[in-house]
Computed example of a mutant assay.
Amino acid sequence: MLRKLVSTKPTAAGRAAYTQLAAALLQSYPATCPSLLFINLLLIDLRSSFPSLLAQLNNDQYPATAQRLAAAFDVLSSFVAFLIRSLDEEINTSGFSMAPDLLLKLRKDIAETISLTIEYLRDRWDASIAGAAGLHPDARSGTAATSEGTRLTLTWESIKDSVHTDPLVLAEIRAMAIWIREDENDNLRNEAAGMMDMLVELYKSESQGALDFRYPILLALEGIMLTDDGTQAFLSHDGWQVVSEDLQSIIRSIAQPEGVEETFSLGEANRGLQIVRVLLAVIDHQSTSFPEEAWMKMVTITASMNVPSTTPSPIILEFQIAMLQLSTALLSKAAGGMMKRYITSYSALSGITNQLSRLVQNLPDEVEGADLMSLLEDVSLDLGNLRQT
């Protein structure tokens, strides 16, 4: 059916129909892979749509256009994830293969599309939130009172649709995040770092009843933090404070499992792992000489962390081990005076390590248990070295 729609419906309505159908099919059958020809058609559609997209924000056709493009980005995200899995497999069980020259061309086309996506997101955010800095006064249509104060509005900003509630923006960030995390393209990562203010603000918007941007933003940050510009932008826009506050809420929610669905706790722990990976990347970056005093709060929070009385899901154990790793990384990089102020936390961290070791030994999966036990042994070794410092 999809092949028939693509070949017989070269109209706008047909393009919307087969794009949304492909996205729906991939949600139901995520192990499948769209054809390369179909992906190229979607990439062309995306790139050709960006130049006129801002001008359509207040048109009646925008919701339909946004739905089609969001579906195209969802298909692209699924394809990139499938491609990564296929290339990472030691034995390709999917039967998927691609000639090296086609793979290089595809990489170039996707990178160009993601670059244009970042450019559009920057313009979209500036039009809705950041005001009209640097633009000709004729572009300004007046002032508007918002929750963040009075600001200058732009003539092409959407009257109805906020960035925080636009599913197209979420689909764009998700596709961008998957690509820049996996593709070692510093140019794209630096471009993404240039919209750090947008990413941090959207991360906070979940508490305001908007779409949940946190997971794709954390995924994007894993790639962005590998660049000098990314780390600097993250800290200058209070990124550490924003994600660490979320991390504290995750610790509280896991510590109170009564009345909380297991799937919710697992999702929270998984997001916590993503946050710890981002914070560790900041600590380990070459530009970070010493941790700031505010960062050290994570050490005391970890030291007061409650360990479950019975063996929980492995993902929760892994998250709590990751908190120990974050604490030892902060203490290892702290200056001598700062380390002495937190010396009372060492025994608490060691106690948590011992409690987690006993829980890990009870895991039914021996391989998974051995991996987690190896992480705990590294934490114990780090704590022993810190005591001798």
Rank of each mutant, 00 (worst) to 15 (best):
T11Y: 09
S236C: 08
Q67L: 11
Y18F: 14
A70N: 02
L221G: 02
V163R: 01
L221N: 01
K4Y: 11
Q248K: 15
V307W: 07
S244F: 08
P257N: 07
F79I: 03
V367R: 15
L280R: 15
S28A: 05
A303R: 10
Y346D: 01
D197F: 15
S94L: 10
A132E: 07
S380T: 11
I44A: 14
V242F: 03
L356T: 00
I91T: 10
P364E: 02
W125Q: 00
H136S: 08
T231A: 14
V282W: 05
E191C: 11
V243F: 04
A81S: 11
Q388E: 14
L273N: 09
M339T: 02
L199V: 04
D123W: 07
D371A: 14
G337M: 03
I251N: 15
S357Q: 13
D161T: 14
A81Q: 13
Q208P: 01
L386T: 04
L21E: 01
V80M: 03
E245R: 15
G337S: 09
D166K: 12
T263R: 13
S380H: 12
W125R: 01
G149Q: 03
R387V: 15
S374W: 07
L376M: 05
N354M: 06
L103K: 08
Q27A: 13
N187P: 02
S141T: 12
E377R: 15
T389E: 14
N362A: 00
S115N: 04
G142W: 05
L152Y: 00
L57R: 05
A111G: 03
S207P: 06
L326M: 05
L2G: 11
E184D: 15
F38E: 13
A132C: 12
I114H: 07
T302G: 13
K108G: 10
P314G: 02
S289E: 06
F79L: 00
E157H: 13
L211K: 09
E262R: 02
A145W: 12
L26D: 00
P137G: 03
L326H: 02
S162H: 12
T65P: 00
R3N: 12
H237E: 10
E201M: 08
K297I: 08
P30L: 09
A220N: 07
I283A: 04
A269G: 10
V276T: 09
G239N: 04
Q232H: 03
